[in-house]
């Protein structure tokens, strides 16, 4: 039985390589069919907002990449409710379907996986 892993992505998409690195871990793990979860926390929730214009910064469109996750076999996508609320975002602001969790739900989630990586 493969060990499960939760990746916690907490950086904004334009804040440097962190968000991209978190996605690369998830895509690579997905290729190995590892049971993976991806949690967007803090500024990480900004990766999910609709209608971002990556081209204006001459960068690749991370949010477009994220939409491919279900095709890569990654269906366990989570978002911290408190991070959304702080940023005046809600479910309708997000570009892909995720499960929104409160703080208690987040600590339960973390304890469900064999490994956790926060980036």
């Amino acid at each position: 039985m493969a060990r499960s892993m939760l990746i916690i992505s907490r950086q904004a998409p334009w804040a440097g390589p962190s968000a991209r690195e978190a996605l690369d871990i998830v895509l690579a793990g997905g290729a190995f069919e590892l049971p993976l979860g991806l949690l967007f926390l803090d500024d990480g929730v900004f990766q999910l907002t609709k209608a971002q214009q990556a081209a204006s910064l001459e960068q690749k469109d991370l949010t477009a990449n994220l939409q491919a996750l279900p095709l890569f076999g990654i269906d366990s996508l989570f978002v911290a409710r408190s991070s959304l609320t702080e940023r005046n975002l809600d479910e309708s602001s997000l570009a892909l379907p995720v499960e929104i969790l409160d703080d208690a739900g987040l600590s339960t989630l973390i304890n469900r996986y064999d490994h956790v990586i926060t980036i």
Partner: peptide
């Protein structure tokens, strides 16, 4: 600040 709310009872 982000970590504290995620601490469960046994953590």
């Amino acid at each position: 600040n982000s970590c504290l709310p995620l601490l469960g009872d046994t953590d």
